[in-house]
Amino acid sequence: MGRFHRHDDGSVHAHEHSGHAHEHSHGHEHSHGHEHEHDHDHEHGAHDEARAELIGDHSGYRTGGERIDVLERIFDENDAAAAANRARFDDAGVTAVNLMSSPGSGKTTILAKTLERLQRGARIGIVEGDIETSIDADRLRGFGAQISLLNTGNGFGGECHLDAPMVARALRDLDLPSIDLLLIENVGNLVCPAEFDVGAHRRAMVFSVTEGEDKPLKYPVMFRSVEAVVVNKTDLLPYLDFDVELFERNLMTVNPTATVIYASAKTGEGLDEWLAWLAADSAVAAD
């Protein structure tokens, strides 16, 4: 399958990569046939041609071969791994939060401040996703948290997101029973991470005011996928034309129920509110 076929996360194509040390702890309970049940009834029958538009020129499409119904969701394998991660978190009493953002939003600084504020008695784990380098993970050391670094790169780029099998791999470096709150710092990217369930219970994103008010409209899937948006770098507002009301209107357009927390990792503004949000559903005390 060529050089692009790199899967050290151990999730897919195990049948082709006998040489890799794969861990299929998430289990392939969906069979390899195509007779298994699917719970997406609306996808059947709702597919009148009027709703579907075909891409590409298929006029040269030949018939004569045998058509086999597959009806397998492309995220099934990831979702099964995510469910397995979630079960492990539940068994260990861990609340897991998937934290997403664009690059440079201040996500790692927010995390460092979070650890600084929580470290007294809090039992925190971090999964740090980065395409290359341990720079972020290094910034988070020294606060008493358990940290597992996941580099998604392999020398010529790398995955633009964390998926559930990658997070499962990162969990090997963490002692879950001694963690109350697991913060999964995703790869900085407003597109792909929104598509992959990693098994977290809650999703949040860090957005910075330097990114512009229009971003919720440009990346609706990301902004729609989270429960909370931390609007960071508010200390810069006096120097920017950022229109807070317009941003909120745009955000509400794609995610009417999002919690918005205005914060500055630099001045500490809003961190109490953020910590309260984090603590709301976990065994971690906010102070």
């Binding site: 899967h7 897919v12 030949r62 597959v70 992959f196």
Partner: peptide, 24 residues
């Protein structure tokens, strides 16, 4: 941006379903 990993997932599903037969 994640179409590469999606393609791999699709290929895995298709290979299982095709069971060795050539896929058109």
């Amino acid at each position: 941006m994640h179409e590469l990993s999606l393609s791999r997932q699709i290929a895995a599903i298709v290979e299982r379903a095709a069971d060795g037969r050539p896929v058109r």
